[in-house]
Design a protein around this nucleic acid. Structure first.
Lengths: 209, 209
DNA sequence: CGGAGAATACCCCATACGGGCGATTTCGCC
DNA sequence: GGCGAAATCGCCCGTATGGGGTATTCTCCG
């Protein structure tokens, strides 16, 4: 039978917040917080040895940031989930945290009950996020601006990004290589780029393909 | 003072589910469902004229799919939020829906109380997702496999994807253009590609840069 | 000690690429 | 009816690119 207790660790530089979090967690049946740290350096040195289910990680920390902390701790703690805590809804920080391996993302004024819900949720295979954060994450999938390219151009850009040559693109679309070249020139002008590499980058970044 | 009532529309081909959903919504104070459709075709023809806050959209529909439906309805209903309903956790469908403009994504066995919560949440700027879905979305930000590239190679790949030439890369890194070329040859071999365009595509796709 | 991988540097060569410039047809829209 | 955008096809030219080699140095690891 599995350990019913969820073991939580905290990395948070503000002593008051750190203690409040620990009190909330230890004061709730089913939760336990034995380890807490004021900075990533000590967490990295001490935490990997101890059994931990969930790490609550502040982002704004002196020295190593919480994002970098997750990046370093994760490989050593494959079974743990990381939930970021932050005061700001900084877009960059959100996506960097997710890339680093965070599974949850909460603003610091999350009420205690919701924080505990989030910890439960992350253990049950979810990805708890504050509402505004979730919206930003979801938004990031959308095409930001309407494509300036025609259908034909988009089609050719797609083949271009497959690494295909003028010639093979021309053959696939039953066109003269000259025509393909003209299209690509027009694509370059519309996207304000000067090479295939730049075009592919821009196309993927702006979700044009 | 704003209308306190949340106006919900439903697009769902199964008559039983459609009616059940409508009953749940109309049976709850603060919610109203006047419009419901069995397919996207009729929704596209009728819905844009009516005031709607939230559209519950089934994905698996005969004819036009729910994903395509969102793509077409969204531009005409900029103030509405779309929540997808699905039976399967199909990865492709999730990301296509989000790209199409969906703001929420729920599995069909979501209990009524949670469904209503989700509708409230999406109206308050959130992005409600079933736990397993949220986890998949968050996972998509992570690097899937460890990079086969050395640090130097990654650095050069980054400059390459900016559209820079051998020469300017060499100058920036204080290297001979020959060296840059050798690195790029090695990058191509490791990534199994044969051109800058392909390399950039793979690099961005696999989150190597 | 030996081997592998990484980083550095160089050579040759065919060709794909990007820029510049012009042209026709079709289609929709004012 | 004319104008612009899109799609099609064409030529010239210089150079960047990619593939084929070879070589040295250094470090890390078994």
């Amino acid at each position: 039978m599995p350990d019913p207790l969820i073991h939580v660790a905290i990395v948070e530089d503000d002593p008051e917040i750190r203690q409040t979090l620990a009190l909330i967690i230890n004061g709730t049946p089913g939760f336990s917080c034995i380890f807490s740290y004021a900075d990533c350096e000590s967490a990295i040195a001490d935490l990997p040895g101890h059994f931990t289910d969930v790490v609550l990680m502040d982002i704004e920390l002196p020295g190593i940031t919480g994002i970098e902390g997750v990046k370093r701790l994760r490989p050593q703690m494959p079974r743990a989930d990381f939930i970021m805590l932050t005061i700001r809804h900084d877009d960059e920080a959100i996506f960097e945290s997710l890339c680093a391996g965070a599974t949850g993302y909460l603003v610091k004024d999350t009420p205690p009950a919701e924080l505990l819900d989030a910890i439960r949720e992350v253990r049950q295979g979810g990805a708890p996020m504050s509402a505004a954060i979730a919206r930003k994450v979801i938004r990031s999938f959308r095409q930001t601006s309407p494509s300036p390219l025609s259908d034909r151009e988009t089609e050719i850009l797609r083949l271009l990004s497959d690494g295909q040559h003028y010639r093979s693109i021309a053959e696939q679309l039953f066109l003269s290589p000259h025509t393909v070249k003209t299209h690509i020139k027009n694509i370059y002008e519309k996207l304000q780029v000067h090479s295939r590499a730049e075009a592919v980058r821009k196309a993927l970044g702006d979700k044009l393909i």
